[in-house]
Amino acid sequence: MRRMVLYPLVALGAAVGTLCFGSPASAHGYVSSPPSRQALCAQGKVPDCGAIQYEPQSVEGPKGLKSCDGGKSQFAVLADDSRNWPATAVGTAVTFNWVLTARHATSTWDYFIGNTRIAQFNDGGRQPNATVSHQVSLSGFSGRQKILAVWNIADTANAFYNCIDVQIGGSGSPSPSPSRSASPTRSASPSRSAPVATKPPVPSGTAWAANTKYRVGDIVTYDGKRYQCRQAHTSIFTWEPIYTLALWLPV
C-alpha cells in the first residue's frame, strides 16, 4: 500500500515542476560541489525547496545581479538565508565544480563574497568543456560565508546564479556532512561503508523498498514474489523488481 501512495506522489511532484515553471529546454548549469543551494535542494538534503529541486540548472537571470535566485520568484527559496543552509567546510582555497547541461559560449565565470569579486575566469566567448572546475582562493576570509558563483553567457544577456555556503578554515559545518572515503582504492573486503541517507542492509526476504542498498544475492519480495539481486545498487522508484530483470532475477 505504501508503494501505491508514494510512487504517484513523486511522479506528480516532478510533473508539476515541469508544467508550472517554463520550458525545460531553458536549463543549463549549476555548481555541484561544494554543493550550491540548488544542488542541496535537488539531492533532497534541504527539503521543501519547491520547483528548483527538479531543475537546479535553471537559475537564469539577467547579468549583473547579486542574487542567489537569479531574480526568479519561483526560486526565491534560494535567496532565503533563514533556511539554515548547510555550509561545507573548506580550507583557504576551494575548487568549484559545475554540471553543465548545455554548453553556452561563455564570457566569464565570476565569484563574489558580498560585493567583493574574489575571482574571475575569462573564457573569451569560447564554449566551455563538458566539465568545468575553478580553484578559488579564499584568503582574507574566515568563518561562514556565502559565495555567489555566476556563469556569464557570451551571446545572451543572461547569466546563471548559484549560492554556495561554506565554513572557511574549520570543520564547523553546522550540519553533518558525509566524509569522503579515506581509502583511494576500492576495497575488496565485504565490509561496506555506511551509505549516505540509506537504510542499513535488510534481512533476506523482506519487502523491496526504495532508497535501500542491495547487494548481489540479496533476496526481496515484491507483490508476493521473490527476487534475487544480480547487480548491487541503491534502489529507486522505477527499479522495482517487476520492471528490472537486469537488477532482479525471479527465484
Binding site: V10, A15, S33, S177, R180, I236, F237
Partner: peptide
C-alpha cells in the same frame, strides 16, 4: 518517458550526494 523522468531524477539525487560527499 515518465519512467525515464522519474528514474533519472532519483539517480541525479544519488549522484549529487556522491559528488559532494
Amino acid at each position: 518517458a515518465e519512467r525515464i523522468e522519474l528514474s533519472r531524477t532519483q539517480q541525479i539525487k544519488q549522484m549529487l550526494a556522491l559528488v559532494s560527499g
